[in-house]
Design a binder for these strands. Sequence first.
DNA 1: CGACGGAATCTAGCAACGCTAGGAAACGTA
DNA 2: TACGTTTCCTAGCGTTGCTAGATTCCGTCG
Lengths: 198, 198
Amino acid sequence: MTTPAAARRARQVAERRERIVAVARALAEEQGWEAVTIRRLADAIEYSQPVLYGHFPQGRTEIVTAVAMAGFEELAVVLSAATSGEAGTDAERVRALVTAYLDFAAQHPATYDAMFLLPVLIPFASDDTPEALRAGFAAIEGALTGLESPPPDPATAAEVLWGAVHGLVALHRAGRLSAGNDERRVDELVRLVTAAVD
Amino acid sequence: MTTPAAARRARQVAERRERIVAVARALAEEQGWEAVTIRRLADAIEYSQPVLYGHFPQGRTEIVTAVAMAGFEELAVVLSAATSGEAGTDAERVRALVTAYLDFAAQHPATYDAMFLLPVLIPFASDDTPEALRAGFAAIEGALTGLESPPPDPATAAEVLWGAVHGLVALHRAGRLSAGNDERRVDELVRLVTAAVD
DNA sequence: CGACGGAATCTAGCAACGCTAGGAAACGTA
DNA sequence: TACGTTTCCTAGCGTTGCTAGATTCCGTCG
């Protein structure tokens, strides 16, 4: 049986959990993930460190995972929105998708790191891959099947396009790409995807 | 002036430095970079920890950098070799390049991480970028300019292709791509690069 | 209302990390 | 053989993630 008090406690616990995730994400975006330590998080939420392990038994990795999951959900929304508009040429629609992805990565670098760089407790490419990840991938695949001459294997093509965009993000953020050339790289990528015919 | 004794010492110092780098790389490939600690390296070379800081004043990061540099030199060789054969169709030559890159990443995962994932003390996309990095990039760019219908902006196209391949490596190693689909992804990437016409 | 019992929370500490100051030892030179 | 420099080690600082055990709080029930 659930007494009112227990319900209230459960709510408080959930709220505190959210607060931890929010603080972790904000701190990561402001000062990088190496600044996100259990001690600092504990200070921020004004509890002792063991409390954090009550919420996240797997420790720091599980907190990073929570931020990553939030990011995947946001990214799925962003990509779906970018591909929902049916209008425009092939190139315009692909560009909208790519740009949306790049913008997301640029606006939330630390969150993006949690999603794609840091070790995290999410089952990928598996049967129980979370819905948000499937949705994001589906948006990419959908954009490709909607092309005038769709690729022969859309699922694989989606993986490649995803890889290409992720690669640009990774190299760009690591400072490996020529500066002030972002536009041209997008042009080139769009050209590759849309100009390829069998 | 350099006495014979000093020359011998210099040689010994250089050898020990190489030994540190070799042990770090081997340990990283066997157990991952998180297992590469100063204490363990010191144990392995049978010296105390401060000795390592004599060789690498910037600490652990500088050791990772040394491994990364070795990797960049090897990668440049591999890519040059893959693009040197003039024979074959466009698709075959691009495939050779891509495959060489993917193979290198698969065979030296930890080294690849040092080169592209971990924080490192190398000036990228700058005037004093090391020669090995330029050479690797030049190999990619060269393969593209050698196409039947070269891309309008080869340097940018090389960045994009490099990003695409790196993205595939990154996603693949993070377990984000469907298993047993590697061949098809390469097919698709080659298709994109070679089938694109202005 | 008051005492019990379980849950929630904190204090304190472990082992490991990167890194460094300061003293000891080894070695080349005179 | 004695000096002085270079090389090296011992010991320790501050930090990390994480946890065992004591303590405090709080809802429930007599």
